[in-house]
Computed example of a mutant assay.
Amino acid sequence: MESVGSGLVTIDWHDHRADVYLSRPDKRNAMTVPLMTDLVEAFERVDAADDVRAATLLGEGPVFSAGMDLEMMRDRVEPDSEIDRDVFPDVLAAIEEIRQPVVAGIKRAAPAGAFELTLPCDFRIIGRNAKYGLLEVALGTFPHGGGTQRLPRLVGLSNAKEIVLTGAFVDPEDAADMGLVHEVVDTDAVDDRAKAFADDLCSNAPLGLRNGKRALNAAFDLPLERGLEYERRLGFELDDTHDYREGFEARLEDREPEFRGE
């Protein structure tokens, strides 16, 4: 395990996979400014690691995350509060913009800010009994860390309004039906399944994974014609690479490809 910054986030490196852990288990991995700052640094490190093809986002201990630290959120309304209001968007952007796909493992709890933390991840694995939802309307506010913008892109406007405006937990099976999560597994299997999912991604060509993610992330931001042009340009970038040739040669020779990210 590699400690990051103040030690509230750790990275476990496994060949082509990096496991990023929220490491504040004594506080149910509740997020503070130092923890979020560490998260930004962690994903910057993973992004810079050319040998890493996929990553996971997990919670150390029995819970993914209890969300934002409640004492921090209470104190931020004080006139002299020094809480950095921009650090959470920085975390979400760091996850969203990382080159490698990210798999979140949601076990037991991920309410409010923890729910929003999972939205920029590319895949979400959830435990059957997880408490997963946006509770902010019951706390005098509404989710404004990306919940009203990223969520409709994942589940549609009607489903997003139900999740945001009722403040109710989303049943994991319902979350799967609406495309919010990708798999529902037993609680004790969440972390292992997230890692296995990431390992499956790692078997693919790293340049294909990265450019494919870039093209998909642009799908809702560009008009169709410009999106198609962007997709083709990203595809053409890979035509003269070792991995492109290796992928087709391996398939013709009926063997496993040896991708190098080149």
Results as ranks from 00 to 15, higher is better:
Ala175Asp: 07
Asp188Tyr: 14
Met178Phe: 08
Cys202Gly: 10
Arg251Lys: 14
Leu201Tyr: 08
Asp188Met: 11
Asp26Lys: 12
Tyr21Leu: 15
Gly147Ser: 01
Ile126Phe: 06
Glu60Gln: 15
Ile126Leu: 09
Glu97Lys: 14
Val137Tyr: 00
Leu134Asp: 03
Asp174Arg: 14
Asp254Gln: 15
Ala194Gln: 15
Ala176Val: 00
Glu162Phe: 01
Leu92Gly: 10
Gly227Cys: 01
Val9Cys: 03
Arg17Trp: 12
Glu173Arg: 13
Val87Glu: 07
Leu207Cys: 04
Gly179Thr: 13
Val33Cys: 08
Ile83Lys: 00
Glu41Ile: 14
Asn159His: 15
Ser65Cys: 07
Met31Tyr: 07
Val137Lys: 06
Gly105Leu: 03
Gly133Glu: 05
Asn29Phe: 05
Asp69Asn: 10
Pro89His: 14
Leu180Phe: 15
Leu8Lys: 15
Ala168Glu: 12
Ala130Ile: 03
Ala175Trp: 14
Glu136Gln: 13
Gly59Glu: 04
Asn159Met: 02
Arg153Asn: 10
Asp199Gln: 09
Asp15Val: 06
Val40Gln: 13
Asp188Ser: 15
Ala110Pro: 07
Val184Gln: 00
Arg74Trp: 13
Val87Lys: 11
Met1Cys: 01
Val4Gln: 04
Asp38Ile: 10
Gly113Glu: 05
Asp86Gly: 12
Ala66Asn: 03
Thr166Gly: 03
Asp192His: 08
Asn211Ala: 09
Gly156Met: 01
Leu139Ala: 07
Ser203Tyr: 09
Leu134Thr: 10
Asp243Pro: 12
Leu201Ala: 09
Val91Tyr: 11
Gly212Gln: 09
Ser203Gln: 09
Val9Met: 02
Asp239Pro: 02
Val52Leu: 04
His16Trp: 07
Ala55Ile: 08
Ile125Gly: 01
Ala66Gly: 13
Val181Cys: 06
Arg255Ile: 03
Arg210Ser: 04
Pro143Phe: 05
Ile125Val: 15
Asn211Leu: 13
Val33Ala: 10
Trp13Gln: 00
Thr148Ile: 13
Pro34His: 09
Glu82Phe: 05
Cys121Tyr: 04
Val170Leu: 11
Val102Glu: 08
His144Glu: 15
Leu154Cys: 00
Asp239Asn: 06
Thr241Lys: 01
Ala49Cys: 15
Asn129Glu: 12
Arg233Leu: 09
Asp12Val: 13
Ser65Gln: 04
Thr187Ser: 12
Arg124Lys: 08
Leu8Gly: 07
Asp240Gln: 03
Glu258Ser: 09
Glu173Gly: 01
Arg108Asp: 06
Met73Gly: 05
Gln149Met: 09
Arg251Cys: 10
Ala66Ile: 13
Ala219Leu: 15
Ser6Phe: 12
Phe220Thr: 15
Asp51Pro: 02
Leu154Asn: 00
Thr32Lys: 10
Gly247Pro: 07
Glu96Tyr: 15
Arg128Met: 12
Gly5Asn: 05
Val137Pro: 01
Leu39Tyr: 02
Val40Leu: 12
Asp186Cys: 08
Phe236Asn: 08
Pro89Asp: 14
Asp199Leu: 09
